[in-house]
Simulated scan of single mutants.
Amino acid sequence: MTAPTINGTRYPQPLEDLLPAARGLDLPEGQRFPSRNRLMREFRIGAPKAGELLALLKAEPTAPLVDSTAPDATDPADAPTVPEPAPPVEPDPTPAPEITPSEPDTEATPVGRPDTPTPPAPVRSAVVWPVVLLALPAFVAIWSGWVGLGGLTGFGVVHPLPGIWDSFSINSAITLPIGVETYGAYALYVWLSGRVPDRARRFAKWSAIASLLVGALGQVAYHLLEAAGVTSAPWWITTAVACLPVAVLGMGAALAHLVRTHD
């Protein structure tokens, strides 16, 4: 059996139409207002609308009890006057001006919160291919200088595999440019990368500077000896040049160890 409806329809009714029907509900003795659940059940309305209807019922002033036998003492002048309804507003016959849509912006400006930091614009890294052009002539000059100085200090052709590969030979002077200059470039990279511990960065800094200075002094020594027509370098130059492979090995091992430690 369906609950009673207002005006014989099941469609939702406005609160103004439901309010008189809500006043006329039979309530138990001692209860002044119906519950929200009963309003929902009686009028088939939702909880929000039932809450609004109950609030309207509670907001109405409660009429005092009047003796039915006493004469009506209500003064007609004191009766509330019902305001006259406002006249309907007629629509303006003048047509509204046509609004032409503006052209959309080609570039939309993102709108963010005031406290949100604006991300920095991506920075394009510089090209490095010109270094190849710089390195080619430097490589030729450095290689020939070190090999020539190695020949003046006792470095020369050796057979590293006697009895195994007798015909295989190598000029030991090439160990000077490979060791000294390669370590200098690697230490310079570690120093400027900023991605290593502080101890490794300091060691890379000073060893790179020392390696580049030794390389420059080696080039100066070779060209001075070659210009003077010297066929054999002095003993102190020979001693220093002979210690370079060992020094490069020690510095390279130390730098590799410091790069991997975080103590």
Score class of each variant (00 low, 15 high):
residue 1 M to Y: 13
residue 3 A to V: 02
residue 15 L to D: 06
residue 25 L to E: 08
residue 26 D to G: 11
residue 30 G to H: 03
residue 35 S to E: 07
residue 37 N to E: 15
residue 38 R to I: 00
residue 41 R to Y: 05
residue 47 A to T: 12
residue 47 A to M: 11
residue 47 A to E: 14
residue 60 E to A: 05
residue 61 P to I: 01
residue 63 A to Q: 10
residue 65 L to T: 12
residue 65 L to V: 10
residue 67 D to I: 06
residue 69 T to W: 02
residue 75 D to P: 04
residue 77 A to T: 11
residue 79 A to N: 08
residue 85 P to L: 13
residue 85 P to T: 07
residue 86 A to T: 02
residue 88 P to Q: 00
residue 91 P to I: 05
residue 97 P to Y: 04
residue 98 E to I: 03
residue 98 E to S: 00
residue 99 I to T: 14
residue 99 I to K: 05
residue 101 P to G: 05
residue 101 P to L: 14
residue 102 S to I: 15
residue 106 T to S: 12
residue 111 V to G: 09
residue 111 V to Q: 08
residue 113 R to I: 07
residue 114 P to R: 15
residue 117 P to W: 02
residue 119 P to V: 01
residue 120 P to E: 13
residue 121 A to Q: 14
residue 124 R to H: 13
residue 125 S to P: 14
residue 130 P to R: 04
residue 135 A to N: 03
residue 141 A to H: 04
residue 144 S to Y: 06
residue 153 T to W: 12
residue 153 T to E: 05
residue 164 I to N: 12
residue 168 F to N: 10
residue 169 S to R: 10
residue 169 S to P: 01
residue 197 P to R: 13
residue 199 R to K: 13
residue 210 A to M: 09
residue 210 A to Q: 12
residue 211 S to H: 13
residue 212 L to N: 03
residue 215 G to V: 02
residue 218 G to M: 11
residue 221 A to S: 15
residue 222 Y to W: 14
residue 223 H to K: 10
residue 224 L to G: 14
residue 227 A to N: 07
residue 227 A to Q: 08
residue 228 A to F: 05
residue 235 W to P: 10
residue 237 I to Y: 02
residue 246 V to R: 10
residue 248 V to S: 02
residue 250 G to D: 03
residue 258 L to W: 03
residue 259 V to D: 02
residue 260 R to C: 09
